[in-house]
């Protein structure tokens, strides 16, 4: 009897000891298989097994992206009532509505990862999750609508096109939809700039002023230099990210400089010049202090943006509750009459 007891105890100890390495071994195997799928360009879909870090990275990135679309409506919404004519107003309205749509595609993608939509929105309001720092700059003149469409949406397209090939299916599909719509945004912005640059001296000066204010922040949209980007290497390995921050920034500068020249605008960078040996433009040093100040909440409009979003949620609460109550009442009625 005693021997049996000792045996049972020994067996338990053995099982306990072997369990931990077994689980680790299983996890390693799963992770290896997962990476193989990624390497073979097989998309990951919501119910597939994925490493917890992959899930968390995507939740962070997609929710930040969704918040950026939604917060991005504020600086442009500022000019809807003051658009110079009906055509411009209709175009700007359509653009801002698109941004809302982009936010919704992305919230729907983030929910496929098991994140709760309202929780992610609350994380934005509490400051736990960030959004693109560009939207913390004010829109001081109508020309800013041109500069934003041309530069900010232009930079967004540069960032988003590679994301259409992201390894996570729902994110990639949302990005395909977003990219299709984004090119109208950039063109309408460039059209505003073209019109202003062909206009009176004052209008041209407005365009130059907007360009001066948005050029550097647009370059910052690509994020820190590769050497300082803490998530880059892993995200590249997982194919969440397909190009590095510095590659995309260089690509943006190379295509945008000739466009600025065509408009007759001066690039606010004394160090900018074509480099024949690299076939790229060299450019000056980005003010990373400013970037981190804005990211960490100290930009010109951070507080205003978060306040506007928080108010929108709070003020809409009774509408959402009433719609829900109405739906429940309708269901009850149909049940009774059936």
């Amino acid at each position: 009897m005693l021997i049996l007891f000792v045996l049972i105890v020994l067996k338990h100890i053995f099982v306990l000891l072997s369990c931990v390495p077994m689980e680790n071994k299983n996890l390693e195997l799963l992770e290896e298989k997962f990476q193989q799928k990624i390497d073979q360009d097989i998309k990951i879909e919501p119910n597939d097994w994925m490493p917890d870090n992959y899930r968390q990275t995507l939740i962070r990135q997609i929710s930040q992206h969704a918040h950026s679309e939604v917060v991005g409506m504020l600086p442009e919404g500022n000019w809807i009532t003051r658009a110079p004519n009906l055509r411009r107003k209709a175009v700007l309205l359509a653009k801002v509505q698109d941004e809302a749509g982009h936010g919704l595609y992305l919230y729907s993608a983030v929910e496929t990862l098991g994140a709760d939509r309202e929780d992610t929105i609350d994380d934005l309001h509490s400051g736990k999750v960030k959004y693109s720092s560009i939207f913390n700059y004010p829109t001081l003149s109508w020309a800013d609508m041109g500069a934003i469409g041309w530069l900010v949406d232009g930079a967004a397209i540069m960032n988003q096109v590679p994301l259409c090939r992201c390894s996570y299916g729902p994110y990639a599909r949302a990005m395909v939809r977003v990219c299709k719509e984004e090119s109208f945004h950039q063109r309408q912005g460039f059209e505003i700039m073209t019109t202003l640059c062909k206009g009176t001296l004052e209008q041209k000066a407005m365009a130059q002023d907007a360009f001066n204010r948005f050029w550097w922040p647009a370059l910052m949209m690509f994020g820190p230099n590769d050497a300082d980007s803490k998530h880059s290497a892993q995200s590249m390995k997982w194919k969440i990210k397909r190009s590095t921050n510095d590659e995309l920034r260089q690509q943006f500068i190379d295509v945008t400089v000739p466009q600025a020249e065509l408009l007759g605008l001066t690039i606010p960078d004394a160090d900018l010049k074509w480099n024949e040996s690299t076939n790229h433009y060299d450019f000056g040093t980005i003010n990373w202090d400013e970037f981190w100040q804005v990211v960490n909440g100290n930009g010109p409009c951070n507080a205003e943006r978060i306040e506007a979003r928080t108010k929108a949620k709070e003020n809409g609460l009774w509408v959402r509750a009433a719609a829900m109550a109405h739906a429940e009442k309708q269901r009850e009625r149909t049940k009774q009459s059936a």
Partner: peptide, 18 residues
């Protein structure tokens, strides 16, 4: 894709807009 709506009718209308 997906979206949130209180009932079927609003789900269809929101789907049209989104």
């Amino acid at each position: 894709g997906s979206l949130r709506a209180p009932d079927a009718q609003l789900a269809v209308e929101n789907a049209r807009d989104v």
